[in-house]
Each structure stands twice: as C-alpha cells, then as structure tokens.
Amino acid sequence: MLAKRIIPCLDVAGGRVVKGVHFVDLKDAGDPVELGGRYYREGADELVFLDITATVEERKTVVDWVKRVADSIFIPFTVGGGISTVAQVYDLLRAGADKVSINSAAVKNPELLGEASRAFGSQCIVLAVDAKWTGAGWKVFVSGGRIETARDALEWIRQGEELGVGEILLTSMDSDGTQEGYDLKLLGAVTASIRIPVIASGGAGSPEHLLEALRVGADAVLAASIFHYDRYSIAQVKDYLAENSIPVRRN
C-alpha cells in the first residue's frame, strides 16, 4: 500500500539552514547536508529544501549544496525558491535534485510550468502555492508570502494541474508558523478539486496535526519546527500515525 509521506522542510539562506516564523525572524539551525543526512537516517520519506536567499549572488551557491546533499542522502528531495527559468530547473535536476518546486515565477508566467513539465516530466515539477484566506476565498501570495495577487488559490492550483505539474506543495499563510495545525479547510478544498498529490504545509506543531491533515486527504505532510528542535523524532511521529491506521514506511 502507498505510504503517506513525512517530509521535513529545511529553509536555506546563503547555504545554511534557517527556519522562518511567519517568514521572518530567522534562526540558524545548521548545515543542509548535515541536517538532511540526519533526517535521512531517522527515516524521513523525502526532504524539501526551500532556498530563501535574497540575493542573486548568494543563490549561485545553490547548485553546490544541492550536489553535496545528493552525494550523501538516498531519498528523494525537492529544491525550491526563486526558480524562474527552465534552465534553472535543468541545473538543479542535473545537480541531483529529484524535483523542483516553482512558486512566484509561475504566477507571473504560468507557461513556465508547462514548459518545465514537458521538458523534464510532470513527476519532477512541483507547484508551490502560498495561500491566504481573504474573506472571499483563498488568494495566492508570492515573494515569500509578502505580496498578495489577484489569483484565486483553488483556480490557480487547478490551472497548474492542467499545465502538467506533478504535485502541489500547499502552504497556508494563515497557519504557517503558528504550530496550531494545518489549515484543514483549505487542504480539504484543494484535495477535493484535483487529481494530483498534495503536500500539506504550514502550522504543524504536533503529531496530531499531521494526522488531521492526512485524514483530510493530504498525500504528504511537510513540517519543520517540530523536527528541527527535537520536539518529536520522525520515528515517534510515524509510530503515532501507524497506531492511527495511517500507512507509513517503517523500513
């Protein structure tokens, strides 16, 4: 049976792992290879690295650390953050990333998703969406969640599916950083409207939160703080999910 995936997320800036609370107030939590390797050995099913580096200069280091990560971990990993061209996608896949996630650039130029999916296959293109409730539906936010767009999140996600992306990484701006649980309404609305896998992100503070998201229909759950600060191990989380009849990988 297909297992539900537990995915630690590592935010990287200037080649170092950091974690944002509401996307600001960063705390240094270490080296991407070191942390990624630790999660690999602990039983993570996959890893996501989001490069939140602000400057073009620093971003040039991405390919280097992606290569170093690929050298030492043997589970799939996704790299996202600031990707705006097919050439950048190619460079990251060539460096060893299994999947690349695209966010703001796709909102400006949706055809980027189509081009990248055709060039490299749907399976390695992830559409990352930062969504926030505005009183009249969820809107898409870009640039690390700082800028509101006119796009309706559900429509945008359906468009991404049509353009050929293989997966949706769905972050709720409302719940991100709160550690009070994923936005289950948003998650339920999204999983009900598309036929590609959805990774839930934003708000995980306990194993119960992961369980709720998987029960609402998420195929995978992304979490950062609960793992980074050793509050729960991946094994503890998987034990809890298995006790609650969620299929998880134990080897």
């Binding site: 297909l2 297992a3 995936r5 099913d45 997966e167 590609i196 195929d219 990988r249």
Partner: peptide
Amino acid sequence: NSSQVKVPHIGWNQ
C-alpha cells in the same frame, strides 16, 4: 487511470 487514482504515483510503496 486518473479517475481511479492520483497520477503520478508518487511515494513509497511495497
């Protein structure tokens, strides 16, 4: 068949 399962098949399976 995407009317039966999500496509692609992504993840850990036995």
